[in-house]
């Protein structure tokens, strides 16, 4: 995977996946992408690219702009990835190979990204897999993962686990106080003035609702 601040490119068996920071300004994305591809497009030449921008919807004009930028670098925009249930194009980025036995035991496995710092306002981490943050996620920062998100500190920003639709995904933090929390297609906002619960908590989907409980 290669990345800049707001865009990331990842090669998969089915071609390239381009991750676009859903919070970033479109012009900034285009500028970064253009520069990034200028440096590495030779390597990908001719590949088909699917784009993923979380829940962000681009205008048809913007989509065209993106397509022609990719074309300029000899890449072909072949589709958009989104949260399942949102449209016919939707499909999961990776189909997790479920080990039924392991699942039964309440275990999951898969790729994980370890981040050994605090995410400060303005930073965004997007990862296809699980994300573990050894630090805090501050207000104004966000973590988006197709799998689980674990924060070994305070989660005060935005977290989106199961971003491509996995409703089994969960978010856990030592201090769970997010601005907004999303799992798959469900969203909750932090209740104001919640009597700060002590100790680690985990958020998951239960019976179609996002619930928070002690670990």
């Amino acid at each position: 995977m290669t990345r800049t601040e707001h865009v990331a490119l990842k090669g998969t068996r089915d071609g390239l996946i381009l991750y676009l920071d859903p919070t970033a300004d479109f012009d900034v994305l285009m500028k970064e992408l253009n520069q990034h591809l200028g440096e590495s497009a030779e390597f990908w030449r001719g590949a088909a690219v699917r784009c993923y921008a979380g829940g962000r919807e681009y205008s048809s004009e913007e989509k065209e702009g993106l397509a022609s930028l990719l074309q300029k670098h000899a890449l072909e925009l072949s589709g958009w990835l989104s949260v399942p249930g949102k449209g016919p194009e939707s499909q999961a980025v990776v189909a997790p190979e479920h080990d039924q036995h392991a699942q039964d035991e309440g275990q999951t496995e898969g790729k994980a990204l370890f981040v050994k710092r605090t995410l400060r306002s303005g930073t965004s981490i997007q990862f296809e897999g699980h994300v573990v943050i050894m630090g805090d996620v501050n207000p104004g920062a966000e973590v988006i993962a197709t799998g689980n998100i674990i924060v070994m500190g305070a989660l005060r920003g935005v977290a989106h686990a199961g971003a491509t639709g996995d409703r089994k995904a969960m978010v856990s933090a030592y201090n769970l106080a997010p601005t907004q929390l999303r799992i798959a297609d469900l969203v909750t906002r932090a209740p104001k003035d919640e009597a700060g619960s002590e100790g680690p908590e985990v958020a998951r989907i239960k019976d179609n609702h996002l619930i928070v409980e002690g670990v």
């Binding site: 400060r120 306002s121 303005g122 930073t123 501050n138 207000p139 104004g140």
Partner: peptide, 10 residues
């Protein structure tokens, strides 16, 4: 404070 946080990151 939000802006200060951003600045500290930078």
């Amino acid at each position: 404070v939000r802006d200060a946080d951003r600045i500290i990151g930078l």
